[in-house]
Design a protein around this nucleic acid. Structure first.
Lengths: 189, 189
DNA sequence: TAGGCCATGTAACCGGTTACATGATTAG
DNA sequence: CTAATCATGTAACCGGTTACATGGCCTA
């Protein structure tokens, strides 16, 4: 799932500019498909146009900079169709939060609690994001996908609510420098 | 969450080699924290050793190539502690499967069914992976994290089982080339 | 009047992957 | 006899990000 594919996917839904595509990828539903910033989107659009998959025209605005509006053409639609038919990669889930949780015994209770709170906020924010994105996408399956996302986020939230105490109790039980935790001699005396 | 951090994290659990660390990251529990291959792990270990965060010694074996065994030292443990305390990134979930699902109306029913089957296999495989990885990690919170993962995978699986029919019915209802689906004139005659 | 939004674009960088080189041993 | 596993490493590449340049309008 590279920037090229996502540009075609978004333009399949209607004409758009580099600026709008970036917004879409940064905080729309498409944020769950790829990462992309200006530095990758603008060159990708230029290249796609040069290859003949996109058409472009300048739209003049007063008071605002001109917009370079791209449209997908038949060649582009065919290419997009092939990309969807070809092999797609596996889903990836990378979680710094779970790394922190894994090493909870070496962290203070405060640190773990703060990390959990941050994660809860993050998940709730993701849920909001799904709601707004769902309303915008003119695709039949968009409700199905949004529901998939809500289901995933909510089940994570529930797990955290029900089990956070257990993790907080593990926090601070070991020290990084003494991996095999030998009872302190001071305490034994 | 870069390769450096993951190397320190793994070495915190015991001495290891570049080869073993890669296995760990490729198909262990750590696969959910970062991506890393030989080309990034070996240079990272060299650099960490040069910076004084790791110690290394050669372990000779007969019949097999020598192993370069790394151990984390006090400097390394301190650095790892700081990394865990510092700001960590947000979780990321990138799903080519959901992109495909989003555009289901443009794909054939066979394609969608195949993608769903592949996704189910993928999720079941992830569940197996969690079980094996859980048994290996000598950390108090490892059960908590494994259970988090199982919960996440299972809820995705359940959603797919219960709703796959709905997605399969959306498949093939539009053509990429005719975005506004006007009823065919042939059919009307 | 400072900062944010609109809007496009580029150059330097960076963190990774891919593919290769090397070579012995073991399992199918 | 082939393929995989063990084991280390490098060079070329690549797909992205970061930071910057530019500049007018609008809001606090």
């Amino acid at each position: 799932m590279n920037v090229r594919t996502i540009c075609l996917a978004i333009l399949q839904l209607g004409d758009s500019t580099g600026y709008e595509i970036r917004k879409c990828v940064a905080d729309g539903l498409f944020s769950h498909f790829v990462d992309a910033s200006y530095g990758s989107i603008y060159p990708a659009l230029n290249k796609l146009e040069a290859e003949g998959l996109l058409d472009a025209h300048i739209e003049e605005q007063d008071g605002k900079p001109n917009r370079r509006v791209y449209s997908i053409n038949d060649t582009g639609r065919a290419a997009f169709g092939e990309m969807l038919s070809g092999p797609i990669g596996d889903d990836t889930f990378k979680s710094p939060f779970l790394l922190l949780a894994t090493y909870a015994q070496y962290l203070s209770r405060e640190q773990i609690s703060a990390a959990i709170d941050a994660q809860v906020k993050f998940l709730i924010n993701e849920l909001d994001l799904i709601d707004t994105a769902e309303a915008e996408l003119p695709l039949a399956a968009c409700n199905w996908v949004a529901e998939f996302g809500r289901n995933a986020m909510q089940s994570q939230l529930e797990y955290i609510y029900e089990n956070r105490a257990a993790l907080e109790e593990i926090a601070g039980t070991s020290s990084l420098t003494n991996k095999p935790q030998i009872p302190a001699i001071d305490a034994a005396e």
